[in-house]
């Protein structure tokens, strides 16, 4: 397996473009429930590689709107799939990137999102009631992008996150759950959006995060687990919010992410030698952006969207990534 010491941007751009052409591939259809997320991941990765136009803007917006479920006032992940908070956030993110928020009925989407908050403060993903701090973050992120945060009961929301805090400084999916890098990121980012980073025991959490780096440079999501490109982003973005990216070895992590590229067909995998997918491609590219990899566009680690866009909406928080290196 050949690996590369460079980010193969043209190859990854082609890989993302080709994702919509795999309609005779079983996996393409088995993952239809993630399609809206996948479009957001692909588009964001393209933005960070400065190839935003590689996917047609009009087609993308038409696809997003074809997933609107009018009875619910929310988006599904694919036409005929049920509405859910995760695709609703992705749809909003895509529309913000394409400056097309005017296509949606903001009061109705806001109402859908707020209706999912539970008495405990956490959010359900849909009316069937699965709860998770991921959904809480999705709600906070979406409301913030829609400029509707003033409608949220912030105290109640923060109180749930506080109860998910563990002795290692991290956060879990629900009260009582073990700390996990993905949940740490969603809780940290939600607190950043709500200007409540005071809830975090910052030294302890940054220590736990720094200890996620393994000798091969990759980061894991929990103690004594394997490294993975997606966890690398979640740890790294959390460290950016805490302004502690310097607590890990950036060069080794950069090499690890680059080594997970598919140098023949494009895309980035969870780890070297594995099959790539768009999920690890965005988190790999986004991680490299935070590490100052030359030629990339800045990503905002709180929203996982292009930083200049978030800044132009007046939503930038006090995170800190590594300075962009000259190529």
């Amino acid at each position: 397996m050949t690996s590369s010491s460079q980010l193969l941007i043209p190859l990854h751009v082609r890989y993302i473009q080709s994702l919509g052409e795999n309609k005779d591939d079983l996996t393409y259809h088995l993952t239809a429930h993630l399609r809206m997320n996948a479009v957001y991941w692909g588009l964001t990765a393209l933005c960070i590689m400065d190839h935003k136009d590689a996917l047609s803007k009009d087609e993308t917006i038409e696809y997003v709107m074809s997933c609107w479920v009018d009875e619910a006032g929310a988006f599904g992940p694919h036409p005929d799939h049920d509405p859910h908070l995760l695709p609703t956030l992705s749809a909003i993110q895509i529309l913000v990137i394409h400056d097309a928020l005017d296509r949606i009925d903001v009061p109705r989407v806001t109402k859908f999102i707020l209706s999912l908050q539970q008495p405990s403060g956490v959010f359900a993903g849909d009316q069937f009631g699965e709860i998770d701090t991921r959904f809480l973050y999705s709600a906070v992120n979406a409301l913030s992008l829609l400029d509707q945060l003033h409608q949220l009961d912030v105290e109640k929301t923060v109180s749930y996150i506080k109860q998910c805090k563990n002795f290692d400084g991290g956060f879990g999916a629900v009260i009582g759950a073990e700390s996990h890098a993905a949940q740490v990121w969603v809780c940290t980012a939600a607190l950043a959006i709500l200007d409540r980073l005071d809830v975090i025991d910052q030294d302890t959490l940054a220590w736990w995060l720094a200890e996620r780096q393994l000798p091969n440079g990759g980061l894991n999501g929990r103690p004594q687990k394997l490294e993975d490109v997606c966890y690398s982003f979640w740890v790294l973005s959390s460290l950016s919010v805490l302004r502690k990216v310097s607590w890990i070895d950036a060069d080794k992590l950069t090499s690890f992410i680059l080594s997970a590229q598919d140098t023949e067909n494009g895309g980035i995998a969870d780890r070297p030698g594995d099959l790539p997918d768009v999920f690890h491609t965005i988190f790999g590219v986004a991680g490299l952006s935070l590490l100052g990899y030359p030629g990339l566009v800045d990503i905002d680690p709180v929203y996982c969207m292009p930083a200049n866009l978030i800044e132009s909406k007046g939503l930038r928080k006090g995170w800190e990534a590594l300075p962009r290196k000259a190529s």
Binding site: D24, D25, D270, D274, L275, F279
Partner: peptide, 22 residues
């Protein structure tokens, strides 16, 4: 996708896999 190895198929194996998947 997690932990799925990238495999190099021969042309014939690729065709057979495509048919099965189809």
């Amino acid at each position: 996708m997690h932990g799925v190895k990238r495999v190099q198929y021969s042309q014939a194996a690729l065709e057979a896999k495509k048919q099965r998947d189809h």
